[in-house]
Simulated assay, not measured.
Amino acid sequence: MAKFIKSFGYAFSGIVHAFKSQFNFRFHIAALFVVGLAGWYFQLSAGEWLWIVVAAGIVLLSELFNTAVEVLVDLVSPDIHPKAKIIKDTAAAAVLIAAITSVLIGLIIFIPKISYAA
Rank of each mutant, 00 (worst) to 15 (best):
I86F: 13
L50W: 10
A55S: 11
A94W: 05
I87F: 15
L37I: 00
P82A: 09
D74W: 05
L44G: 07
I97V: 12
L61M: 09
I86P: 08
R26I: 07
V34Y: 08
A18Q: 06
E70I: 09
T90S: 10
I86R: 08
K88T: 13
H17T: 15
A30P: 10
V34E: 03
H17N: 15
V54I: 14
A68C: 09
V59I: 13
W49A: 09
K88V: 12
I97W: 07
D89K: 10
V73Q: 00
A55V: 03
H28R: 10
I52A: 00
L96F: 06
I86E: 12
I87L: 14
K88R: 15
A38H: 07
F33C: 08
L60D: 09
L50G: 11
V35Q: 01
A31R: 05
K83L: 15
A18T: 08
V59A: 10
Y41D: 00
N66W: 04
K83N: 14
S21H: 14
P78T: 00
A91V: 04
L61D: 07
A55I: 02
A68T: 06
W40M: 01
G57L: 08
L37R: 00
E70T: 08
I80M: 14
F42S: 05
H28Y: 12
D74A: 05
V69K: 01
V54G: 08
A68M: 10
E63V: 07
F19Q: 06
L50F: 11
A92M: 12
L44K: 04
W40D: 03
L72D: 13
A93K: 02
A31G: 10
V35E: 03
E63K: 07
E63F: 12
G47Q: 14
I58C: 14
T90I: 03
S77K: 12
I29E: 03
S77N: 12
A91F: 08
A55Q: 02
P82F: 09
L44V: 05
L44Q: 04
L32T: 09
I58D: 07
V73G: 00
K20N: 14
A55L: 04
G36W: 03
A18E: 06
A46V: 01
V34N: 02
D74L: 05
I97H: 05
V73M: 01
S45R: 04
L75D: 01
L32G: 14
L61S: 09
A56I: 03
E63T: 06
K20D: 13
L44I: 04
Q43D: 01
